[in-house]
Design a protein around this nucleic acid. Structure first.
Length: 432
RNA sequence: GUGGGAGUAGCUCAACUGGCAGAGCAUCGGACUGUGGCUCCGACGGUUGCGGGUUCGAUUCCCGUCUCCCACCCCA
């Protein structure tokens, strides 16, 4: 035998019945998002490498060491050597599409997108090289209201609704404002200055961060560093009136609509493009990967990508993690749709059985069809295994009488139903 | 990328200081040719993740490698 080929590192197959759980989540997402007037957008799974370099930020870990990048080998001179990258996140591609299709003419755009993302990280539970994100973005010219706090609050409230709908409790919403890009530059500088005299007393990681990305020092979890971090400047002190008012307004709305949150002035996010509102929903029982979703405002991203000013806010839900946290309460078996009827033909009755199955399926019943070569006993076993609620026996007597034996597999109750009434009879007794 | 743990039948796991690789469940068949679940009997199923080394002999010891898991890192 040839050497078995396995799924590449960090990828996995999602099999039934788990796929039913994925569909359950995605159906809930589509349903909830529709109520908030979000519409689906689908963008390519690979893009020009430059898009992510400019959009996500050259200095981020994502861009500097985690992207799947290759050089396209085009035949035409013009595409030779074009560098392409599997998308590591969704926002950059969506903003690129916004610019490319000049969608500012449409006013306020509310998009969502579900699909795989790719990052070359070391795999762990809830962390894969191909992982799935549910992404939503609100973007448009400022005249459309895209920069207003009501949009931030609406998105957060929508997320709370979605989690509630999925039956996920015990989440925690952490909220912060990271300021405008100008405010952040000042804050960064202040941090660098404040860290200079104390960084030698900190952990090795912080010593490195103090130079490369001071904001990340705030994220440090080493207990010994906490007293030092507590004395560092806070972003709140660098927010000017407009940013502060914006942040206050978001909080006011959330309080009014009853979405609980906590302020975490140390919350920073890994992508360079975030401005003002930044947030994260966490959930216990996910180990170190406790961030179930995260997002924020990115008022300058469109311009960084060569587009017009287009404030925006969005988030990404880690679908893999969402499903991990869901599985504790809702096993996939609970949402998988089992057959309502198993049609069991006796010897020579395949054609009649197929005809019956066709009729029932046209009435939107889930039907599994057996085979005339199966002995009845085997048909019963197959019906059980398929999880069917009823078994329909198609034998010579039944075909002659045009009425069929229908047995409830759980109760053992058996009745004889005429062909014309079959579908209606079953539909009345099978909950979809 | 760093450190640690684990990999044995489809699944969950055994196999004593190195000595014939096993059980339960699942699958298939029979008891049972138009009525299942229970029971009984039988069968199938493995180069012990892969490659090398030590040894008369390796699932067991050593080295390498792959994958998963845990913690960092990072993030969803």
């Amino acid at each position: 035998m040839m050497k078995a080929i396995k799924a590449p590192r960090g990828t996995r197959d999602i099999l039934p019945p788990d796929t039913a759980l994925w569909n359950f989540v995605e159906a809930a997402v589509r349903d909830v998002f529709r109520a908030y007037n979000f519409q689906e957008i689908r963008t390519p799974i690979f893009e020009s490498t430059e898009l992510f370099a400019r959009g996500v930020g050259e200095e981020t870990d994502i861009v500097s060491k985690e992207m799947f990048t290759w050089e396209d080998r085009g035949r035409a001179e013009s595409d030779k050597g074009q560098s392409l990258t599997l998308r590591p996140e969704a926002t950059a591609g969506i903003v690129r599409a916004y610019i490319e299709h000049k969608m500012w003419d449409r006013g306020l755009n509310k998009f969502f997108c579900i699909g795989p993302m790719f990052r070359r990280e070391r795999p762990q539970k809830g962390r894969y090289r191909q992982f799935y994100q549910i992404d939503a973005e609100v973007i448009g010219p400022a005249s459309s209201g895209s920069d207003l706090p009501a949009r931030d609050a609406e998105i957060l409230e929508m997320l709370a609704t979605l989690l509630h709908r999925l039956g996920i409790t015990h989440w925690n919403l952490e909220l912060n404002s990271v300021g405008s890009s100008q405010e952040r530059v000042k804050f960064n500088e202040a941090l660098r200055v404040a860290l200079e005299p104390v960084k030698d007393k900190m952990c090795v990681d912080c010593q490195r961060r103090a130079v490369t990305n001071p904001l990340r020092v705030l994220d440090c979890k080493v207990p010994e560093d906490q007293p030092i971090i507590d004395k560092l400047p806070r972003i709140t002190d660098f927010l000017e009136d407009e940013s502060r008012k914006h942040f206050d307004a978001v909080q006011n709305i959330l309080t009014k609509v009853g979405v609980p949150f906590s302020i975490n002035t140390r919350l920073v996010r890994g992508l360079d493009y975030y401005t003002r509102t930044a947030f994260e929903f966490t959930h216990g029982a996910l180990g170190a990967q406790n961030a179930i979703l995260g997002g924020g405002r990115y008022d300058g991203l469109s311009e960084a990508l060569g587009g017009p000013a287009a404030p925006g806010i969005g988030f990404a839900i880690g679908e893999d993690r969402l499903i991990l946290s869901l599985q504790e309460k809702t096993p996939a078996e609970a949402v998988v749709r089992r057959p309502g009827v198993y049609v069991a033909p006796m010897a020579g009755m395949n054609a009649d059985a197929a005809q019956l199955a066709r009729e029932l399926r046209r009435h939107d019943l889930v039907v599994e069809l057996g085979d005339e070569n199966f002995r009845l006993k085997k048909s019963f076993e197959a019906a059980d295994k398929a999880g069917a609620k009823y078994i329909l026996i198609v034998g010579e007597n039944e075909v002659k009488a045009d009425a069929f034996a229908l047995k409830n597999l759980a109760t053992g109750e058996q009745v004889q139903i005429g062909r014309a009434e079959l579908a209606a009879w079953l539909k009345a007794r099978i909950v979809p």
